[in-house]
Nucleic acid binder design. Structure first.
Lengths: 202, 202
DNA sequence: CATTTTCTTTAGTGTTCACTATAAAAATCC
DNA sequence: GGATTTTTATAGTGAACACTAAAGAAAATG
């Protein structure tokens, strides 16, 4: 029944136009949550940063938790492009080495955005929607790593994925505590050495 | 001026006796914080669990944050006895292997106490006393690892410590997300393989 | 221009948070 | 037994939290 909603020359939908841009709001939210955490950034900080009052925020996003879910999805789309790293014709050790080194670089690149937003949020309380959603997104990415490794090492896919997942969580934690890029890279390379020992033991 | 306070036959100190045991309170607090987190366990939950009202709690401990500091110190005293693992006449790889495997076992042993209380708290907001204190305790333990490794590998002590620290944070995070002991042990052993590659490259 | 639709603001709401002032209770001391 | 000391409870405190009811504003429609 919305056959006209994508037409370029269609008149704007009825009603007062929104006073802020949704994409800019998500970007701002992502920055704030990444610098702090879901719990540390209250609605007052969000609405201040967006220049709107609470009802406008809720009208647009429904709730803080739903807003966060959108932020998480947005972050996951842009972070560590698995599609470009886990290429089918690529040796797993090489691909995973690149993944871990990229994580090391990314997690320390911006002093205001240390670590990984998804992995940090995944550690929230079990009952919180924010943590539940972050965990789901994290596990979807882990599934892709497992499938990638299973192509060449089906019997090691789960253990390798566990190790990569745990290592990335550790890198994120260390980055949050202030570890700089070169030290994170050293950690990543040592982890890759462990991966090689595991995958080359065929 | 308190020359009599340790005498067995000395009368009790003046004043109303405390209606709860301090050590039991710290144990209870440790369990609650470990199951949840510093922020997730409010004062109501604490005082309910201890069977006291807020003024009694504050009289005894000063503040929630000071109580937590005591809980953290208590936990660190008991967890993963570094003194028994980092023995001077021991090969670093063997000692660190035992440390990481012990971490894997400890972090998954009790389904209600997953991960490491100190490392989880260390990831709290930068400005919070709870996180600041946890970070300090964590870094004291890392200093001991670094000194231990520096005995035989002075030029690698920092990088090895970074790796062990990051790996333990990763193990803690994975345990919090529900990874079981055998999977954590696999992760630890792969990490040890990486350590061997680094320390045996002399 | 009145109606409809959608978004915005003002002015709250109830709950939870960490913590406190005051009075009373429980012990020792002399 | 009154004074002193220490601990306890009652009854709050102010602040922050996520969120909302009602009214008004800004747009399109006919």
């Amino acid at each position: 029944m919305n056959t006209k909603e994508n037409a370029e020359s269609a008149p704007r939908a009825r009603g007062r136009p929104r006073g802020f841009d949704m994409e800019t709001a998500l970007d701002t939210g992502q920055r704030l949550f990444h610098a702090g955490s879901y719990d540390a950034v209250g609605l007052a900080a969000l609405t201040d940063a967006l220049g709107v009052k609470p009802p406008s925020f809720y009208k647009a996003f429904g709730s803080k938790s739903e807003f966060f879910a959108q932020v998480i999805e947005r972050y996951a789309q842009a972070a560590l492009a698995l599609d470009e790293i886990l290429l089918p014709d690529r040796a797993p050790v090489d691909a995973l080495a690149e993944l871990l080194e990229s994580a090391a670089r990314t997690y320390a690149r911006d002093p205001e955005q240390r670590g990984c937003l998804v992995l940090e949020a995944a550690r929230g309380p079990d009952g919180d929607d924010s943590a539940i959603h972050a965990r789901r997104v994290a596990n979807q990415r882990r599934d892709r790593i497992r499938e990638f490794v299973a192509r060449t090492h089906p019997e090691r896919a789960s253990a390798v994925t566990d190790f990569v997942a745990s290592t990335m969580s550790g890198l994120s934690a260390s980055a949050r505590e202030g570890m700089d890029e070169s030290r994170l890279l050293d950690v990543a390379r040592t982890a890759v050495a462990g991966l090689k020992a595991q995958l080359d033991a065929d």
